[in-house]
């Protein structure tokens, strides 16, 4: 069974005329890493909101179709209930801090306190999250005393401690320096090993090509393509959607290197070297 199921999802923000999401359908299996790509205003954030229940519960507006996450129909449940199944992390690490706690450890407790998790269980889960995100060493620091990359990992840990089956990340690295971005990608890869399903909107195409099992291409609220990175990045019309293919794909195209099994262009440097290695 699919852990995420979206059927004919349509959505329009209040007081707007255009559909922000236009008849979107797709399914995701447990443990998959899905990359979400598309130009600015394509509808990536809106889709992330729809998967976490903020659309339609927080943003209101016109809504049609159905979204199921871990068996729950999003429209029928409150955001707080969905939070136990779906975690959401977004761009700005700073505004994800509650601004009401004095240490990273207490910051991570916030969601668990709200959900009424018993104290011992709370501490066990928090220690696990600290470990998973590699931030145990900063647990006594003030949340505002951290670097962007550290703060973003605290934001992820806060959400992971709530034990969601699905983690949605909306451009989590776009305000981080290269080192901070690298840290975030590393821990997200770690999470997939824990069986957590990942949906990640991201502009760093090379990184997505490396980590994603599938890529969803969105434009003007429509799902243009939903397939393996190799298939999606082989499309000739990517520039029409404001997307530049991964470096490896462009090199492959320029040099005429294709994956011998799939007859598609490579999406990672590793795939290129494999092909060249085979030929040599």
């Amino acid at each position: 069974m699919s852990i995420i199921q979206v059927e004919g999802l349509k959505y329009k923000y209040p007081d707007t005329d255009q559909l922000a999401l236009d008849d979107i359908s797709f399914e995701v299996k447990q443990g998959e890493f899905i990359g979400l790509i598309g130009r600015n205003t394509a509808g990536k954030s809106t889709l992330c909101f729809a998967l976490s229940g903020l659309v339609p519960h927080f943003f209101n507006g016109g809504y049609g179709g159905k979204v199921f996450v871990n068996g729950l129909e999003v429209r029928q449940h409150e955001v707080g209930d969905i939070a136990a199944h779906v975690g959401l992390v977004f761009e700005n690490p700073f505004s994800q801090m509650t601004a009401s706690k004095y240490t990273v450890f207490e910051e991570i407790a916030f969601g668990l306190e709200n959900m009424g998790v018993e104290r011992n269980e709370m501490i066990t889960r928090m220690d696990e999250s600290l470990d998973l995100l590699d931030i145990t060493s900063i647990k006594d620091k003030h949340p505002f005393d951290l670097s962007g990359g550290q703060m973003q990992r605290v934001a992820i840990a806060s959400v992971i401690a709530m034990k969601p089956k699905i983690l949605i990340l909306d451009e989590p690295t776009s305000q981080l320096d290269p080192q901070g971005s690298e840290e975030v990608f590393k821990v997200v890869e770690n999470l997939t090993k824990e069986g957590i399903t990942i949906i990640m909107a991201e502009h760093k195409i090379d990184k997505l090509a490396e980590y994603a099992d599938k890529v969803a291409l969105i434009d003007h609220g429509k799902l243009i393509d939903f397939d393996t990175p190799a298939k999606v990045f082989s499309r000739d019309d990517l520039p029409d959607y404001g997307i530049t293919a991964p470096t490896a794909t462009r090199i492959g195209k320029a040099l005429g290197i294709k994956d011998s099994k799939t007859d598609l262009f490579p999406v990672t440097i590793k795939a290129i070297s494999r092909e060249i290695g085979d030929k040599l």
């Binding site: 707080g80 994800q96 509650t98 009424g116 998790v117």
Partner: peptide
């Protein structure tokens, strides 16, 4: 939004760290 997705508005009884 961040508070919302961390269950700030649930009606469950809070616990404390």
């Amino acid at each position: 939004i961040a508070l919302e997705v961390r269950g700030f508005n649930t009606k469950m009884k809070k616990t404390f760290l």
